[in-house]
Design a binder for these strands. Structure first.
Lengths: 358, 358
DNA sequence: AATGGCGATGGAAGCGCTTACAGTGGCGGC
DNA sequence: GCCGCCACTGTAAGCGCTTCCATCGCCATT
């Protein structure tokens, strides 16, 4: 054990006022930049505060002004780059607006309404991100009590909504596969209505329809690695892999697992089968063949959500949903010529480069 | 625009009390599980609260009990899996303890002491994670005011410290390379004292020393992708690559970029040059050759930090630093026989599998 | 020299909740 | 039939801060 001394409670505005020889009102004004305080007085207050290591109690301020100056974020229990980027975008924007961020993780299945309810009491507004555990009912209830936004989540009329573009981009991606001469194109991923992957599936169907083609195959699985391996096993087992010439996957994770498993079984990607992903994860660049995918401006989604929430708190009404553009990132797995994975050349599109590091 | 109706301010304890025909003290007791309240009364209060959609104001409670029931986390502006996992571990533990998590991002360079100071006013304790922007002075100041813990960060006597094991594991990793017959082993990464990578470098030196060998090369660069490419360029340019037979990299990011660039130039990994990383990122599994690396139980670090913080807040004194074991993950890039990237077979060690998904 | 106006300051009333402390009434024991 | 105890409940005093309103000099006007 290193030390027994736990920090003493910090000074209050009263002690600062006493030490500076002024009233607490003056101390308060000094810290609230607006109030008019004589330079000498201000100086004295600042000095006293410094000496006392004064830290204003946010709770007291919140109580007095009836604003916590904090935003809540609800995320699923997932530590992938997608949510991390969303969160970073959100936090950056919030902190620039002078707002704190209170994070709550809610697993997709467990409906811990309690957690969210508690969160509600400490923030001025809440953002629900994608597959966060909270169900639509919870979101609706929250939206009735506080400004609320949703990101990549089924829309609720009472909340502002943000999405990355899915359908149109999926159509273009699928058309690109068609341009490579592929005709028997399958889709992998759970196509629930209202979900991102559901919309991607729609776009895929749009493209096929436009070309007068039928969907070759649809495997409804969770967009996770394990499911990708299972899908690949199945395709190999029932020989379906030979009746396909392309596979549009709901996300990179699926695509990567499928490619890895198929490659191990001797299926050549893209020669025998083109495969595409979605999300442009880091692995997509380094995989062999490098993965054609879609980059979403996820941090923009986070940023927009925070700004919208701040506006709502300041009295703005709910707005129509906003969609952020996505960009195709064409690499080798769709049949395009391979490009070595260099940072500079890995960003052929105009979308901002993803931040991913340690 | 969809709706003009912004949520009305929620009911207070007074309104609930009035509606239930009791005093506010009774309402308070009803929600604080401890107080003794007659079943009928409790029922009436609960009903009234339900009907009024009562949400207790956390700020008022915090003010009254002089506890915010919230923990602060300071992270760098980085959206990689490492920090995400840390954060998830932390949040899970905190929420199980009934504590909220307030997140603050501070870039490594910018010393926004202001942000941290503000955070200080709204939480009962703070965790500083790894390369978070706050410098040692800031941490020290915070530690003087509130219970504080650090994770993978230079130790401060006033704060509890948590680390993943680095030195010993790096020694074992380097010895493994020696066992593969490698003798001219270089190190890539900034070896600052007190940093994780600095400790890994120490372990690398330990192994060489134990074998009576000299370090072949040390390139001090930031542990980021771009630096990895630059390092590879340089090794190729000055021919140093031919004087080495192994490279221990400070993290996966460096290793992956180096392998990719070297492979493009015809250098065979691991035949010509063995390369190892650190962190066991997802890409490590899918890279060709698959990357030998080290898995750290990052979410355990987060969990431990949260628990320690909670204990400190309850009056526990500062404890000695705690180190969490790391595990070698040997794949192909060190010279071991390759293993196909299947989820089940990709986890040869006993460490928990990393969560990474979307 | 009296009058306004105004910048600077203090007084004091909350904000919504917790928690001593002080009842209040019913009930068993004597 | 009175007393004391106990389970409940109410009263009220804060917690630390903001902010309206009043006060007080002091200087520029008239």
């Amino acid at each position: 054990m290193t030390s027994n001394i736990n920090p003493a409670p910090s000074a209050t505005i009263y002690e600062v006022a006493a030490r500076a020889g002024v009233s607490i009102a003056t101390v308060s004004r000094t810290f609230a930049d607006n109030g008019s305080v004589a330079p000498r007085t201000r100086e004295a207050v600042l000095t006293a505060a410094q000496e006392l290591r004064y830290v204003p109690a946010a709770a007291a301020r919140a109580l007095a002004v009836r604003r916590s100056k904090a935003l809540g974020v609800v995320l699923p229990h997932i530590a992938g780059p997608y949510y991390a980027e969303l969160l970073v975008g959100f936090e950056l924007a919030a902190s620039q607006l002078g707002l704190s961020v209170v994070l709550t993780l809610v697993a997709p299945n467990d409906r811990r309404a309690a957690t969210v309810h508690e969160l509600l009491g400490r923030v001025d507004g809440i953002a629900f991100m994608a597959r966060s555990g909270a169900d639509d009912d919870t979101v609706r209830r929250v939206a009735a009590a506080r400004p609320t936004v949703t990101v990549a989540r089924r829309r609720i009329p009472e909340a502002d909504a943000f999405f990355a573009e899915n359908r149109e981009t999926a159509r273009r991606l699928t058309e690109h596969l068609l341009a490579h001469g592929r005709r028997r194109i399958g889709f992998v991923g759970l196509a629930e209505g209202g979900s991102d992957i559901g919309r991607r599936h729609r776009g895929y169907l749009d493209a096929l329809e436009g070309a007068g083609l039928d969907p070759a195959l649809h495997l409804s699985v969770d967009p996770v690695e394990d499911a990708g391996f299972a899908v690949a096993e199945q395709l190999l087992a029932d020989g379906a892999v030979h009746e396909l010439d392309a596979l549009v996957c709901g996300n990179d994770e699926l695509a990567i697992a499928i490619i890895a498993r198929l490659a191990a079984a001797g299926v050549r990607v893209p020669e025998d089968l083109a495969v595409t992903g979605w999300d442009d994860t880091r692995t997509a660049r380094y995989l062999a063949p490098s993965l054609s995918t879609v980059r979403q401006d996820v941090s923009a989604l986070g940023r927009l959500a925070a700004h919208r929430l701040a506006a709502r708190i300041d009295g703005d009404p709910v707005q129509d949903p906003v969609t952020v553009d996505s960009a195709l990132v064409l690499r080798a797995s769709c049949g395009c010529p391979p490009v070595p994975p260099r940072p500079s050349s890995s960003v052929p599109s105009s979308a901002p480069s993803p931040k991913e590091s340690r």
